[in-house]
């Protein structure tokens, strides 16, 4: 008697049509502007965070609210300057360039402005879901709603907006991202780092040190920004192209 059907059979090959198995890392444009931008982006983001920290401790809601548009502008600028827009990379990956062949200008590429707009819309739409996720982890349900909502907005902007821009709503790509099967790159690394950082940010909250910065959600914001920066750097460099989960039928 074979085991229940749910058990993945190691001998069964992964189905070819599974696009997540083919998902390629998101590569930063090779233009000098883009290459400089990827580092400048981090500097600006962390600089903003550092400059606002004391105000964050003082009044988290106001600070998170005031910085939200700034962060949005930073992320939009970064995406448009450095990241390939959704759809542009798939065609590139599909066509291998012969040696000596010059890359053609992609006339049929998607419109980056539309993509930016749609990504922002998606980021806004996903924010309540992120809020819900925080509540499920034990965040206050009925109180601290502005804090939670703003925190979720920041998380969505940092972790999810670049992914929306780079992948659109490609279900295969999102299945790969959701299943941690996507290859590391700046976007996925940043997302994973941000989530892990926010998770770790909960650790100091219960301590009885009576510090102002222990109040909700400051530590989470710190973890989020630190994790995003670290994840983005690592994902774009040493981990580039590597995968957490190597294939779809990995048995564990």
């Amino acid at each position: 008697m074979a085991g229940p059907p749910s058990k993945p059979n190691p001998t069964q090959p992964a189905k070819g049509k599974d696009s997540h198995a083919l998902l390629q890392p998101v590569l930063i444009h090779t233009t000098p502007v883009a290459q400089a931008g990827r580092y400048l982006h981090l500097l600006v983001l962390l600089g903003l965070f550092a400059s606002q920290f004391s105000s964050l401790v003082e009044d988290p809601v106001r600070t998170l609210q005031n910085t939200l548009p700034l962060v949005a502008v930073i992320q939009v600028t970064y995406a448009s300057a450095c990241l390939p827009v959704a759809g542009s990379q798939a065609t590139r990956a599909a066509r291998k360039l012969r040696p000596g062949e010059k890359r053609k200008q992609e006339h049929m590429g998607p419109n980056p402005y539309v993509a930016l707009f749609l990504s922002l819309v998606l980021t806004t739409l996903v924010t309540p879901a992120v809020h819900l996720a925080f509540v499920l982890f034990g965040a206050p349900f009925l109180t601290h709603i502005p804090q939670n909502l703003l925190l979720s907005a920041h998380l969505s902007l940092l972790a999810l907006f670049p992914l929306f821009y780079a992948h659109g709503v490609d279900s295969g790509a999102w299945r790969a991202i959701g299943g941690a099967m996507a290859p590391f790159d700046e976007t996925f690394g940043g997302c994973a780092g941000a989530l892990l950082g926010a998770w770790l940010g909960a650790i100091p909250i219960p301590l009885d040190w009576d510090r102002e910065w222990q109040k909700w959600p400051i530590t989470i914001v710190c973890g989020l920004y630190a994790g995003y920066a670290l994840g983005k750097v690592l994902g774009g460099s040493v981990l580039l192209g590597k995968r957490m989960v190597t294939n779809a039928v990995k048995e564990d």
């Binding site: 059907p5 993945p8 299945r175 790969a176 959701g178 299943g179 941690a180 039928v249």
Partner: peptide, 12 residues
């Protein structure tokens, strides 16, 4: 939930 994404059968 993340791990479940790796299950090949769509139903499972």
């Amino acid at each position: 939930a993340v791990a479940s994404f790796s299950i090949p059968s769509a139903r499972d």
